[in-house]
Design a protein around this nucleic acid. Sequence first.
DNA 1: TCTACTGGCGAACGGCGTTCAGCGCAACGT
DNA 2: ACGTTGCGCTGAACGCCGTTCGCCAGTAGA
Lengths: 230, 230
Amino acid sequence: MTWPAERPPRKTITRAEIVRIGLRVVREEGIDALSMRRVATEIGTGPSSLYAHVANKDELLRLMFDEMCALLPIPELDPPRWKEQIKELARAGHQVMIEHNDLARAAIATIPTGPNALRISNAMFGMMLAGGIPPRIGAWAMDRIFLYITADAYEYSIWRDQVKGAGSDKETFLSDLGRETLAYFEQLPADIYPHIATYATALVGGSVDERFELGLELLVDGLDKYSGVS
Amino acid sequence: MTWPAERPPRKTITRAEIVRIGLRVVREEGIDALSMRRVATEIGTGPSSLYAHVANKDELLRLMFDEMCALLPIPELDPPRWKEQIKELARAGHQVMIEHNDLARAAIATIPTGPNALRISNAMFGMMLAGGIPPRIGAWAMDRIFLYITADAYEYSIWRDQVKGAGSDKETFLSDLGRETLAYFEQLPADIYPHIATYATALVGGSVDERFELGLELLVDGLDKYSGVS
DNA sequence: TCTACTGGCGAACGGCGTTCAGCGCAACGT
DNA sequence: ACGTTGCGCTGAACGCCGTTCGCCAGTAGA
């Protein structure tokens, strides 16, 4: 007597389940592995089944992004430390975004309207106000900071894809790339690219984190000049 | 007697021609319209013919990016105006990137190694040095500025895609979006999102250009503290 | 003149997001 | 208890995409 091969015990598909699986795929294998078909297969059905719960892939990415935002703890406001708190929140968001490979790609042009993303926005905006930044400037600055951390995470994720494509591990890939680029820069004609040839070492030097920190520092510390309380 | 229908008079395909057509397509219709098939059709052949001249689509995008960089005029160095010159160069790059819809997507994680991109890097790096910025800091800051203008152009291009998708023109789309977002923010529960609800107007206000300028100003003016000559 | 090579090409492969007509099953009205 | 209705779900298909493969023709060199 044959059993109806692999009768799926699954009864209902939920939006939350789709989002959860999507997040898992993107965390473990990167955004390139995330397709409607892949999520559907993971659930045990065909791709069309998802469209009853999610309008399209874009909406799925937005939902996933907001779900990811829920992972960020919202710190309690400590007004004197407003600048440091902004940086901490930015670093934490950057980190979570990198861990989720690159939901950055979904975040980069979406006005954050999900409940969890709004909690983060509200928190950082509160820090701006605590620092005496005028609301208008604070709103724009927050926008710029989020754009910055998103872009950096995006850049990072593309590198990661290239590492995976090359087959080598991260350290050797990056150091190889650095060595190659350094050699290339040093060999450039000094009459056309004088500064690049001269300072090749400085140009290729520095870790990803150091560069991220510099940008963050410039963006946040520069707010001083707008601070009413300083 | 029948003529061999539409015998293509084209003899040879060149790399430069492929790049040129790619740039035109991306300028006129956006990056989503750019496919190997599209370029091939434009030339009058099948997609496989391109692979003798270009390794793959990624390489094509890199070549297109460098070709686009050639459009940027390199200003003569004027040391006392170093900060203003950096901003001018950044604005010009931003503008050219926006005009080419979003080669930003190709630029965001590529170390610029093409001859034209290197000319720009060399110029901006020279401005950093003219401002007395230590080479290491200058190199990183340049990296951050390029990342910033690329990310902003990318964001802009995604909005443009959405505008095109919605069918309305740019102004009505953006003002509609602003109005909707404003209404949404104002209606949020003030106990959970106090700042957002209160300052909804500030949050949705401001043009794209104003926001871009703020970020650029923070990044560049913040360099003062590293300037040895100031 | 014969040959080796190379740039060009049609067809195909495996993937993608999305749509559509229909299926079975649970819930509901009677 | 029994139609009936509605909806969650599904397989198949459409039209794209990047890329590969095997073949062809024309040319350059021997």
